[in-house]
């Protein structure tokens, strides 16, 4: 009796376990169905490597958007990763536990603040500051990177802190017993032990940055050009889709789905590389 019940439950759980995969496939099918024939028609090279985006004239080059997405994400990581990891290390290794117990939840609240609020602060505080201090339109790559960098902080901090906390205490005690200072024990032992987890934290942060749409639309200026400086307006892939989806018909709409395909593939590649890196580390152990 128990045996069959348990078996039934096992099958049920297995079915549930495929929900995520099924959803992913559904999403892929629906996006690819619209986008791939379009890319085939326009031509791979003309779509990916042309800088000419004029849907009404039949030009669909998304090169500037690809560059912008990558640069904005990179910028966000330059802001977010060092700050986030430093914060996690400090909270976990240098501060008494009861203080961390107050500060960590406080920082996790940042994660709950909606992206549109960050975007709004970007528009009313950061962009005018950039415009008056450095010139240019203010709504720029710099503004987008700063806002996104702050937005990914909670993700990075929260996961990194958990990773560091999971490093066995024996590692710390061992290092300290050998006469290492706190900092030596951190960068020689603990960061190494937690490296794969921290990489995962940063990758998750990057995922959030590259996928963010509304905050970017608000602060990046959405100009489909290849930026010459960090003060130029840029348009990311996500922003392009969100801004034009409402007004797109026919080939233009398919082009936006094709951008979706590119985003999708970029993220798949990205994820695979990250997973491989993590796996390699574990294999090397």
């Amino acid at each position: 009796m128990h045996q069959t019940g348990d078996k039934l439950i096992k099958w049920l759980l297995m079915a549930l376990a495929f929900t995520a995969l099924t959803s992913l496939l559904l999403i892929a099918i629906f996006i690819f169905k619209e986008g791939v024939p379009f890319i085939a028609r326009v031509g791979f090279k003309d779509f990916l490597l042309s800088s000419d985006w004029q849907p009404q004239a039949g030009h669909f080059g998304i090169y500037p958007m690809i560059v912008a997405s990558l640069l904005v994400t990179l910028g966000a990581m330059l802001v977010g990763a060092p700050l986030g990891i430093a914060c996690a290390v400090f909270l976990n290794e240098f501060v008494p536990k009861h203080v961390t117990r107050i500060i960590k939840p406080t920082i996790e609240l940042l994660a709950g603040i909606p992206s549109v609020v960050y975007g709004f602060i970007g528009v009313v505080v950061v962009a005018p500051l950039i415009r008056s201090q450095f010139g240019g339109p203010g709504l720029s790559m710099l503004c987008a990177s700063l806002i996104l960098g702050v937005m990914v902080l909670p993700t990075i901090i929260s996961i990194s802190t958990d990773v560091l906390a999971s490093v066995p205490n024996a590692f710390r005690e061992g290092a300290l017993a050998l006469g290492a200072t706190r900092w030596q024990s951190v960068h020689m032992v603990i960061l190494k032990a937690g490296r794969s987890g921290i990489v995962a934290a940063v990758i998750l942060g990057m995922g959030r940055a590259i996928g963010e749409t509304m905050a970017v639309i608000m602060v990046a200026g959405n100009t489909p050009q290849i930026p010459h400086s960090v003060l130029d307006s840029v348009c990311t892939l996500t922003a392009k889709i969100a801004i034009e989806m409402g007004s797109a018909t026919g080939a233009h709409r398919q082009a936006l789905f094709a951008i979706g395909v590119v985003l999708f593939i970029m993220i798949m590649m990205f994820n695979s590389i990250a997973m491989m890196a993590i796996k390699k580390r574990f294999a090397g152990k």
């Binding site: 004029q54 004239a57 528009v123 962009a127 005018p128 415009r131 339109p137 203010g138 709504l139 639309i217 200026g221 959405n222 100009t223 489909p224 050009q225 130029d232 307006s233 348009c235 969100a242 801004i243 034009e244 409402g246």
Partner: peptide, 23 residues
Amino acid sequence: ITLARKAIIQDSNGTIRETVAND
């Protein structure tokens, strides 16, 4: 009109108004 490459793009009347009002 072939729109200038450097043009900032916004997706509604309200946002155009806000952008112009702020710049």
